[in-house]
Simulated scan of single mutants.
Amino acid sequence: MPSLDSVWYTRCPAPTPLSIAHQLGWIDRQFQASGVSVRSIRDSKDPTVRQSHFTHALDYSFRQGGNIPPIWARSGGRETRVVGITTTDEFQAIIALPSSGIAKGADLKGRRLGVPRKPGEKIVDFQRATALKGIVSALSLEGLGHADVELVYLDSTEASLIERGNAAFLGLKRRYPYGEELLALARGEIDTFFVKGAEGVVLANQIGAVVVSEFGFHPDPKIRINNGTPRPLTVDARFLSEHFDLVADLVETVTRIASWAEANPDDAVRLIASEIGVGEDAVRAANGPDVHRHLALSLEDEQVAAFDHFKHFLLEWGFIPADFNVFDWIDRRPLEAVSRRIAA
């Protein structure tokens, strides 16, 4: 087995057990016990390293967050494996201003829906894909399709992932979403747009928006599934094959968060809010009052089927370059090893 001095990790600003485990110091302690240091991809000053947040290009790396980038990376040939999945439903909605006259989903027919777009992006345009999936879901609930509305693409040239603490963020950790859509709405160029998560709740509240269609907790998982639902824990295949025990240790550490959050609900919400950069009330509004009960790491068949459904959506809309077998992408061995450890 080759020696290993350090590993790379990254996570999205979202409710994930990996994020909480990192903030509690569990991830660092787990790897340090094996003489391995943990380095953050998102905090790197090197843009090539930061890009691995989307491309999964770095060997000996792990990631938990939105599922579009890892699906795109796997579609492009990057050998990664899904070793766990967390399903934490969240607010997803189409919003409009009260003056628009749009009050319900059926009113969207013939109207202008804003879609963010990064035309020069070399990686997957996950924000455009996320918005389009939300729009398609909302329209389908009314028996409508994307041809029944006008999709207005709102172009931005800002990179998807700038280093944290950049001066452009005015002292905040990152750029919050929906800026292009909000400006277009204010200019009268669009009538509605898609928002999700805690940031979406805050923005809708701030502008006094009408929630035209809300479907983040819809009973049909094919309606709910989007970039943030569900969120996979992925590792590169080399890491898994050369250091299986370290990956199993990682999975065990992340798995322990579910019971910790159940016992410490207020702390769990506080850490989620800190990760996203919003108030704790926004987390509860976006993810529900029992968000602390939805941080388990598992590999249920319905979770994998949800990925497969979303992969087909991304393929149909041209977001990923090639088809692949989602079920072969899953590696249950680390989670099974953890289950045996717990049973013993």
Rank of each mutant, 00 (worst) to 15 (best):
D59A: 08
Y60G: 00
Y60T: 05
G66R: 08
G66K: 03
P70C: 03
P70A: 04
I71Y: 06
R74N: 03
R74H: 14
R74P: 02
G77M: 10
V82R: 06
V82C: 14
V83R: 09
G84F: 04
I85N: 02
T86F: 06
T86D: 04
T87K: 11
T88N: 12
Q92Y: 03
A93S: 15
A93P: 11
I94W: 07
I94S: 01
A96K: 03
L97C: 02
L97A: 05
S99I: 06
S99N: 11
S100E: 09
I102G: 02
A103T: 15
D107L: 01
L113C: 11
P116F: 13
P116S: 15
P119D: 15
P119M: 13
K122R: 15
I123Y: 03
D125E: 10
R128T: 13
A131M: 02
G134E: 07
A138D: 07
E142D: 13
G143R: 08
L144C: 04
G145S: 14
G145W: 02
H146M: 15
V149K: 04
V149G: 05
E150I: 03
L151M: 14
V152N: 10
Y153M: 08
L154C: 00
L154Q: 04
D155F: 02
L161E: 15
I162D: 08
I162E: 10
E163D: 14
E163R: 15
A167T: 14
G171P: 05
G171T: 13
R174F: 12
Y176P: 03
E181W: 02
L182M: 06
